[in-house]
Amino acid sequence: MTDSSPLILIIEDEPQIRRFLRAALHSHGYRLVEAETATDGLRAVTTHPPDLIVLDLGLPDLDGLEVTRRVREWSRVPIIVLSARGQEQDKIAALDAGADDYLTKPFGVGELMARMRVALRHSAQLNQDGNEPVFQVGELRVDLARRQVWLAEQEVRLTPNEYKLLIVLVQHAGKVVTHRQLLREVWGPGYTSESQYLRVYVGNLRHKLECNPARPRYLLTEPGVGYRLVDE
């Protein structure tokens, strides 16, 4: 464990979950700060500025959503929220408030590590201020500089909106992007409730990029929340 390894802040009131997270994170070489309540957590954000926050949405003293908002007022540190199934609206609210990703309880360590990796990488890229010019996953290759999309050796032709949609997803590759976020970035702020546009365009994109659109490999649906472009 070195000082250069990322510092993770866990804000979670359940001791059993904290215990399991502690074990898992330690064994993966992360440093750890724990907070039992939202108040403690917010204080910890200022005293030990973390590289990533794992935040439970159901805290006893303050809503997890509120914590996200307060952190976002002054920090861009990645936040991964934890919530139970059936709380889609809470998840969306947290994501729209600035959280980077979410996990549904119960979850496995593998999933958590994958999400954390993606979030840390994005935050690192943000600090370097620049995306890589070419995005590649499986047979899908997006050349951002030349605005070209390739599937295996075949170039794929997209409409302007399809391309914009794909680019937003590529920019957040590996992370979930909410319907609202996608609509705002592709169609503009006036369209944030017109989710049928999005669904139709995602459908079109899948028909062009996936070999079986009904069993997608790249462009996954997060039911009730948004979409995720796989990146590994």
């Binding site: 989710s195 049928q196 669904r199 139709v200 995602v202 459908g203 899948r206 659109p213 009904a214 069993r215 997608p216 996954l220 649906t221 997060e222 039911p223």
Partner: peptide, 14 residues
């Protein structure tokens, strides 16, 4: 919400 069925099937299979 109006949506393509394909997407729901895809989500379930995923």
């Amino acid at each position: 919400e109006w949506q393509p069925l394909e997407e729901v099937v895809g989500a379930a299979l995923t």
